[in-house]
């Protein structure tokens, strides 16, 4: 029982990260019908930005909550700007072409970010500085939770509540919902769609960057290709929850995280070695596409001719 609770805590920790990244995928897909392949790499950019901030602002030697907050928000802001620049210079010029074209551009962008960072930071992993003292807290039984896990929960819940507020209580959130409903109608109604799309990219990138910094705290090893697999799993989370659906992305992320750690913990009893943990998300994706392509919370949209 203790190990089960422990596995669940670990699973929900990583699941919260998937959820944060999945939110960016699902928002961009909702608005542009584009799978933003570069989103997983923005997560990586966020982790590296946090690394640079931590080193150059001198927080690596003195762990404190203020240092962590500065690194987190600094990384979110810088990554949001990078996300908007990507949208401005890569995606906006191809928006008028077919979806295939935008998809290829997104793949190109993803590789551009990955290999530019390989050149800048070299491919070898870097150690992310410890920004907060890492203590273990014992819960009931023998299950423990450490500071960085706690941090992941608290920060991601706060960010998701913030996102909910932006989308449902602010004017720009209303515009985002309008654009995702129908871009052309929104434009006719006087919504500045270019701004809304850029804002969405910024918002999604900020969430991914927060995920990057949090993951780097939890598992202090960052490398330029770290976004590839985690981005893929986050996308599966978005599809599982119903792509374009924001609560769905969170639900999907938590489910994928939990499923993954449960396979690692208990898979060996039913013949699945724990090394297959990365295949779990993929198997889930195939099942979702076969059984319920619209996702758990998504509605089945009829194609308009």
């Amino acid at each position: 029982m203790d190990t089960f609770v422990q596995q669940l805590i670990n699973g929900l920790t990583i699941g919260s990260i998937y959820a944060l990244i999945a939110l960016g995928y699902t928002m961009v897909y909702g608005i542009l019908r584009l799978i933003n392949f570069a989103h997983g790499d923005v997560f990586m950019v966020g982790a590296y930005t946090g690394y640079m901030l931590a080193i150059h602002l001198g927080f690596e030697s003195s762990p404190s909550i203020i240092g962590f907050a500065v690194v987190l928000f600094g990384s979110m802001i810088i990554s949001a700007v990078i996300g908007m620049l990507i949208e401005r210079f890569a995606y906006r010029p191809v928006r008028k072409y077919s979806r295939m074209t935008t998809l290829i551009t997104a793949i190109g962008m993803s590789l551009f970010l990955e290999y530019t960072f390989v050149v800048i930071f070299s491919g070898t992993p870097r150690a992310f500085p410890q920004l907060l003292p890492n203590d273990n807290y014992t819960l009931f039984g023998n299950a423990t939770i450490n500071t960085s896990q706690l941090l992941i929960f608290v920060v991601s819940i706060l960010l998701m509540l913030g996102l909910q507020y932006i989308i449902f209580k602010t004017k720009v959130g209303k515009a985002m919902r309008a654009v995702s409903f129908n871009l052309n109608s929104a434009k006719l109604m006087g919504v500045n769609t270019d701004f809304v799309i850029a804002f969405t990219f910024g918002l999604g990138s900020a969430l991914a960057a927060a995920g990057g910094v949090l993951v780097a705290q939890y598992n202090p090893k960052i490398e330029p290709l770290m976004g590839l697999l985690i981005g893929l799993k986050a996308f599966v989370a978005a599809v599982l929850g119903g792509i374009g659906n924001i609560p769905g992305a969170v639900l999907g992320g938590l489910l994928i995280g939990a499923a993954e750690t449960l396979v690692v913990g208990y898979g060996q009893y039913i013949g699945i070695p724990s090394t297959y943990r990365d295949a779990v998300a993929f198997a889930i994706l195939i099942l979702v596409l076969l059984i319920r392509p619209a996702g758990l919370l998504g509605s089945n949209v009829q194609e308009k001719v």
Partner: peptide, 16 residues
């Protein structure tokens, strides 16, 4: 690989 990625993006923008 950076050059390849740039070629891909620029091809899509200029000649999809």
């Amino acid at each position: 690989l950076v050059i390849f990625a740039l070629i891909l993006i620029l091809t899509m923008i200029l000649r999809p």
